[in-house]
Design a protein around this nucleic acid. Structure first.
Lengths: 110, 110
DNA sequence: CTTCCATACCTCGGATTGCTATGGATCGCG
DNA sequence: CGCGATCCATAGCAATCCGAGGTATGGAAG
């Protein structure tokens, strides 16, 4: 469960460059080493939410084959938000690390 | 937001030994470096939930001063569950790491 | 041509989860 | 006694993710 971190994940996926919804799903799957295979019912609402929040901007395009796609890109705000989220994640991750410390017989250098 | 990881956190806090609810809160705060200051309304339901699931066992005690406390301890299942959760966390954490990779101008060795 | 699949988009309802707020009780201290 | 800290508990709320379902197009297969 990605509860609470989905937004960061989507933003991170789009930090590589603009993409449409379906491509975001594949990008996430690829970059997570197949760990995250997010269903559409998760991604699309997230994209809408992020656009609503001004972190993404979307634009309709039509490919040569005539297929219509909605392409999302990070806004300036989105960029900043991603940086924030990443910092928060670091904190969070470290805190969890602290919690798990001592739980496991990890090799202590000292 | 700890969504989805609270159970692991509580289990981790109790892995140091049995404790009562209030003490769990302090243990979590301490071991997380003050990062997590969980309200009682979060912990008590979590403890009940985990006991319901058979991962914790509780026992009423009365201190010398006559104060009644409910002391929780990890069961065998709880121990195993904690190990699982930790493994899952590792996976999850690594996957997020992969996603964030390339997002930041990190020093690339190559 | 018709059928089927992959692509691509969207929405709704359910289930879970954590938090706020509230309440009650006991203990120690000034 | 009043007050804060300790200790337990519940109810209601809000957020979030996901499964299921619906629409539509292009291309390949039959």
């Amino acid at each position: 469960m990605l509860k609470g971190h989905l937004d960061m994940i989507v933003l991170a996926a789009l930090s590589a460059g603009p993409a449409h919804g379906y491509a975001v799903i594949e990008e996430i799957r690829r970059r997570s080493g197949e760990a995250f295979d997010l269903p559409e019912g998760t991604i699309y609402p997230a994209l809408h939410r992020l656009e609503q929040a001004g972190l993404l901007a979307s634009r309709w395009t039509t490919s040569e084959s005539g297929r219509r796609r909605r392409v999302y890109a990070l806004t300036r705000s989105g960029d900043r938000a991603l940086a924030e989220r990443r910092a928060l994640w670091q904190q969070f991750s470290d805190a969890i690390g602290g919690l798990l410390e001592g739980t496991r017989p990890c090799k202590k250098p000292a």
